[in-house]
């Protein structure tokens, strides 16, 4: 059990999240990719907290805060997607260009 395994896992999950964030067309899937990226950050935080700061676990406190903010972000993001869907009748990311020009 080394620190590097967990850092590599976090990096892989973060890159998968970025790929899904950029390439997916469905807006709900974009939110799922954002959740994947936040979880990758949490793996990093808890890995460092376990291996570098085992006595006073401050990284776990930060991970709990990240989980809180992620839950709030998911609720607000899904309600925004819902209201956009009511107005435009689609969830295609290619047609969400209201603020583009």
């Amino acid at each position: 059990m080394q620190l590097q395994y967990f850092l590599l896992l976090g990096a892989a999950l973060f890159c998968i999240g970025i790929y899904g964030l950029i390439t997916s067309r469905n807006a709900v899937r974009v939110l799922m990719s954002i959740e994947l990226m936040l979880n990758a950050v949490n793996i990093n935080l808890i890995g460092f907290s376990n291996f570098l700061d085992g006595a006073s676990i401050k990284g776990q406190v930060f991970a709990v805060f990240v989980i809180t903010v992620a839950a709030a972000e998911a609720a607000v993001g899904l309600s925004i997607i819902l209201s956009i869907y009511r107005n435009r009748n689609t969830v295609d990311m290619e047609q969400f260009n209201l603020l583009k020009w």
């Binding site: 979880n39 890995g47 709990v64």
Partner: peptide
Amino acid sequence: LLNADFVSAAQVLIYVGAVNVLI
């Protein structure tokens, strides 16, 4: 595995129980 049992329980409760159901 990383000795974080409280965060693990919070992960199951919040992510699997709330965020995933919300999605």
